[in-house]
């Protein structure tokens, strides 16, 4: 049976097509302001890419912030369950998952069967979310894809004390003015967000092995910062950005 998992986040929309337990195609676009039209566009581009027709898809599960506005979905499920499912499929040993999204960060704990046992999400503040990294990369005039590698070059991470996204930006401006190195400031930024995530990990209680899912898992600087604070390895997968959509496609297989 062919199923579709679709994950419409606040920044990007992802889709995964599955046939049984095989991934047949995946696709990603940026959302823009209308999550509904983004979902339609995502679907039609995906169908073209996979050379299949819409009617070949038996079931669709939607997740992410736009999950309830997708008309063609058979079911909407939150990201928590989908990331749990997706990561458990890709990395069956993993018990704790960190996911940093555009608006939300979460830490998910799985039981031995891959079922979500508990989770914790960031408070209302955006400081521990992907948005923080976006804003900071812009302040450092760095492409988001180069941001992590630049952080790895920093030998003496700068101290970023403010947890507020807006104030951290002005703190960075004064660090630049003081002449601190660009890579050290960038490294400091990554440690700052990692500390916020670590406090969430501690709140829910870390059970190793630990993995990171979502697009931010591609950021090597953040993985490094998390590993050095937690003193434990953080696994990732090349499909990390698609793990929510993958989980949704897997759930659709059960429908």
């Amino acid at each position: 049976m062919i199923t579709l998992g679709i994950d419409v986040g606040s920044l990007t929309a992802k889709a995964v097509l599955m046939d049984g337990d095989k991934i047949i195609e995946k696709h990603l676009i940026s959302v823009g302001y209308n999550s509904k039209t983004a979902a339609d566009k995502l679907l039609s581009e995906l169908l073209d890419k996979a050379f299949i027709e819409r009617k070949a898809i038996a079931k669709v599960v939607a997740t992410g912030y736009g999950r309830n506005s997708i008309g063609f979905a058979d079911k909407a499920t939150t990201e928590i369950i989908c990331h749990g499912k997706g990561i458990h499929f890709l990395l069956p040993e993993v018990r704790t998952i960190i996911d940093i999204g555009g608006q939300d960060s979460k830490v998910i704990v799985l039981d031995g069967n891959g079922t979500v046992a508990n989770f914790v999400m960031n408070d209302k503040c955006a400081a521990g979310t992907g948005r923080f990294l976006d804003v900071m990369a812009r302040a450092m005039e760095t492409e988001i894809n180069d941001f992590g590698p630049l952080a790895l070059k920093g030998k003496n991470p700068s101290e970023i004390s403010s947890v507020c996204t807006v104030f951290a930006e002005s703190e960075i401006i004064s660090l630049v003015a003081k002449g601190e190195k660009r890579e050290d400031i960038t490294s400091g930024i990554h440690f700052s967000i990692a500390r916020r995530i670590v406090s969430m990990v501690k709140r829910v209680g870390l059970i190793p092995p630990l993995a990171m899912s979502g697009g931010v898992a591609l950021n090597v600087g953040l993985i490094h910062a998390l590993e050095s604070i937690l003193e434990t390895p953080v696994s990732t997968t090349p499909l990390s950005q698609f793990s929510g959509a993958l989980g949704a496609a897997l759930l659709a297989q059960e429908l």
Binding site: Y65, T77, T78, E79, I80, I81, Q103, D104, N113, T115, V116, A117, N118, F119, M121, K124
Partner: peptide, 30 residues
């Protein structure tokens, strides 16, 4: 002014999904 509906909605939905899963597992004896 201190209430953010879509964030709270996601949290409640996710929380209820977790509870549902747990109960299902209890019933099936897993």
């Amino acid at each position: 002014r201190k209430f953010s509906q879509s964030q709270i909605e996601t949290r409640i939905d996710a929380f209820m999904e977790v509870i549902k899963q747990r109960k299902q597992h209890d019933y099936t004896g897993n």
